[in-house]
Design a protein around this nucleic acid. Structure first.
Length: 106
DNA sequence: CTACTGACTAATG
DNA sequence: ACATTAGCCAGTA
């Protein structure tokens, strides 16, 4: 059983903690969260895919304000319910007013 | 150790 | 707006 870790490491917990700090109605990009924890954006996505079940993962979107295609439906359901603004196309979040800046540096 | 993969980002055509 | 390429970090085989 030790072949597959399956358990969150210190980097994973750092990512989950950072995402948990995002307040309702706000969103952050993978790059922002990655910067707070001092890692790369790909690591944030990988962690949320495995352990994102305990944090508001829908508040983490891509750099252009669009959630991943596979999660768009679920993500929008939460984002709209929290009052997040979206563009006229309705395909992406309006990052300017919704972007959250906090994380580790404040 | 190397190679592949992934809920990413930015630049280029 | 879309597709492709390169760079990036961590995990798994």
């Amino acid at each position: 059983m030790a072949t597959t870790a399956g358990l969150p490491g210190p980097r994973d917990e750092a990512v989950l903690d950072a995402v948990a700090t995002i307040p309702s109605g706000r969103v952050a990009t993978y790059g922002m969260v990655a910067d707070w924890v001092g890692t790369g954006p790909r690591q944030v996505g990988r962690t949320l895919s495995r352990f994102g079940g305990g944090v508001p993962w829908w508040r983490v979107v891509r750099a252009d304000g669009t959630p991943p295609p596979a999660l768009a439906a679920d993500a929008w359901a939460h984002l709209v319910g929290e009052g997040v603004a979206r563009t006229r196309s309705g395909t992406r979040v309006d990052l300017a007013p919704a972007a959250w800046h906090g994380g580790a540096a404040r």
